[in-house]
Design a protein around this nucleic acid. Structure first.
Lengths: 137, 137
DNA sequence: CATAATGGTTGGTAATACAAACCATGTCAA
DNA sequence: TTGACATGGTTTGTATTACCAACCATTATG
């Protein structure tokens, strides 16, 4: 099963390369990979603590700490959920939104030399293939 | 530049998905993502401490600690370099090799449901595209 | 040969992550 | 309806990861 094995290696290598770029760009903005993921989710919508933890595969206590530090930096806020008194909703501040946009741009620039090696057709192919592979089971 | 932007998102999403799988499988074997990378390199060849640190983008002191813990677990060893008395060579033990093979198999199985969605032609395309993108600048 | 550069380790600190214990709030069943 | 259980979050404690600065040993260079 060499074809699938090559795909495995290619996926893993790419993962480490892209993760390296994200770690570096994130680090330049004092953001860990995990914080980047949290902000990436909250960029589009607000979410509850447990929801974030489950989506990222982390313990809720870990998420609590991550939110603590990001909140202390003024990147996001905690709010009450009107429907359920136990729930804590988390959402971005304007400063957080601004930061995540900036980091997104920097990541785009950092990966441009790599994606730039592909012509438009190849880019399209890559997107389609990755969409298939990255969809959760 | 929507095409490149889609590619960016697809790459990042795939990165997090694959990293999640690696983190989970690694964790089931008490290995962090970084340890997995170290073992992945040493699987094929021995390497010096600084070389490992540079390749993974980590401080040499971080690498020293990683090696410490892996060595304490019996996964790898430190040895003298005959050509340069300052250098410490790092290489796998049989137990380390066995573990990395097992983890590799588990990762293959864990990703199979995803790669299995692609037919042989698509797998081939994906490998080629990822090789282009993941090559270092 | 003195000095600088390189390779690793050690010690200190912060962030990340898990597990266990805990509190508050909701849910469900007798 | 109230007692038991479940759920959502936080807190505390510990190990790992990661950086930096300082340090020692060895090698390279003037």
């Amino acid at each position: 099963m060499t074809a699938a094995d090559d795909a495995l290696d290619a996926l893993v290598r790419t993962t480490f390369e892209v993760a390296g770029v994200l770690t570096r760009v994130g680090g330049e903005n004092d953001l860990s990979l995990t914080q980047l993921r949290v902000l990436g989710i909250l960029r589009d919508r607000r979410a509850r603590v447990t929801e974030l933890a489950a989506y990222l595969g982390l313990d809720k206590s870990t998420m609590s700490g991550l939110i603590d530090r990001a909140q202390r930096r003024g990147l996001l806020m905690r709010g009450k959920n009107p429907d359920d008194g136990r729930v804590v909703d988390v959402y971005m501040t304007p400063a957080g939104l601004e930061l995540v946009e900036r980091v997104h741009d920097e990541v785009r620039r950092a990966l441009a030399p790599r994606t730039g090696r592909l012509d438009p057709d190849q880019l399209d192919q890559l997107v389609n293939l990755l969409e298939i592979v990255s969809t959760r089971p």
